[in-house]
Amino acid sequence: MEQLGYVADHLKLLGDKTRLAMLTLLREREWCVCEFVDIFDMSQPAISQHLRKLKSQGMVKEERRSQWVYYSLNVDDKPHVQAVLECMPDSQRILKWLNKEGPIATCVPDSSSCSS
């Protein structure tokens, strides 16, 4: 029964379209928080909250580089999450759905902000 709760908690997180889109984008590369802010047109605290939830369930890993935090996918041990992500469209379709053409911000390692 513990496995049911484990899987149910993960699927609950995937029930949010922003988190599902984030994980789908993370299939292809790592992303910085500032890039997600631009892509999803959300505040940095809102993006961080979504990523905190994903990290708490072990679905993403984070790496700090200077003041920027980069996230990468961490679902190798979660076949149920992998199965869901395999059904998702590629990053270009997700970005088109969000009315974005691609990453519109890049984090500059020695800067205090992202550049557009």
Rank of each mutant, 00 (worst) to 15 (best):
S66N: 03
A105R: 09
T106P: 05
K96E: 07
R29V: 00
E101T: 13
S111F: 11
E62L: 14
L95K: 11
V81Q: 03
L11E: 09
V69W: 00
H80W: 15
K100N: 04
R93I: 14
P79M: 05
K17W: 14
W68L: 05
T18N: 03
A105G: 14
D9Q: 08
P109C: 08
L85Y: 10
V81D: 05
K12V: 03
Q57Y: 14
S91M: 08
Y6P: 02
Y6W: 10
N99V: 06
R27G: 01
I47V: 03
W97K: 07
L13P: 02
S91Y: 13
K78C: 00
W97P: 00
A46K: 10
W97F: 12
S115N: 07
H50P: 02
E86N: 10
P103D: 15
Q44D: 12
Q49D: 09
Q49Y: 13
W31P: 00
K53T: 05
H50Q: 09
K53C: 15
S112Y: 06
Q44Y: 15
D38T: 01
F40V: 09
V7S: 01
N74E: 08
V108C: 11
L26Q: 10
Y70V: 05
W68F: 15
M42F: 12
V75C: 12
M22T: 10
C114N: 03
P45Q: 03
Q82H: 05
F40K: 02
V7G: 01
R19L: 11
L95E: 02
L51I: 13
C114V: 01
I39Q: 00
A105F: 06
F40W: 03
E28R: 11
R19T: 11
I94L: 07
Y6A: 09
F36M: 11
D77G: 05
R65T: 15
L13R: 00
W97D: 03
V84Q: 00
T106A: 15
L25E: 00
E86L: 11
C32H: 08
L14S: 01
C32Y: 01
K61W: 14
P89G: 03
K55R: 11
Y70G: 07
L98Y: 10
H80Y: 12
D77E: 14
C107F: 02
S116A: 13
C32G: 06
R29Q: 09
V108Y: 03
K100V: 00
T24Y: 08
C32K: 04
K12T: 11
K55A: 09
Y71S: 12
